[in-house]
Simulated assay, not measured.
Amino acid sequence: MVYIIAYLTAHKGKGDDVVVLAAPLIEATRREAGCITYDLYRKPGDPDALVFVETWKDKVAVDAHFEEPHLKAFQSAMADLLIEARIELVSPEKVEVL
């Protein structure tokens, strides 16, 4: 199994917009082959700080996810809403920043 932790920081007051735009992404991703869990959380006290916590069967499933149109559409929609995004891929061998 591999895990992805994606930290998103939205512009002030834009966290709600990110959550709304993420809903179709979450629904579609949960149906992907190899997706075990895919959840979005908000930092208590800071609604503009969000974290995706994902569990995948293997790296092949993650690579396929990164090619999905629903992920690419979400990334495009987020371009003007985010200050920062940091994605970490956690596997038994290492932690990679993507």
Rank of each mutant, 00 (worst) to 15 (best):
V60F: 01
L8E: 02
A77H: 05
E93M: 05
Q75L: 12
D46P: 01
G34M: 13
I87C: 04
S91Q: 01
V95C: 03
K14C: 12
K14I: 04
D46H: 09
R31G: 03
V95T: 06
V19P: 02
A49Y: 09
V19D: 05
L81Y: 05
L89A: 04
V19L: 09
A23Q: 14
Y41L: 15
H70D: 02
V90L: 07
A85D: 04
T37C: 08
F52S: 07
A6N: 13
E67D: 11
D58K: 01
V2I: 12
D16E: 14
A64N: 11
P44D: 14
P44N: 13
P92S: 04
H70T: 00
E96T: 04
C35M: 11
V19S: 05
V51E: 04
A23K: 11
L50W: 05
I26C: 03
P69I: 00
P92T: 02
E32K: 14
V18P: 05
T29E: 13
A85M: 13
G15E: 11
A28T: 08
H70K: 04
G34I: 14
P69T: 02
D80S: 13
F74G: 06
I4V: 11
L21Y: 05
V2K: 01
T55C: 10
A10F: 11
A61S: 15
R30I: 10
V53H: 12
T9N: 08
V60D: 05
S91W: 00
E96R: 00
I83R: 08
W56C: 06
L40F: 03
D58Y: 02
L25C: 03
R42C: 10
D48A: 13
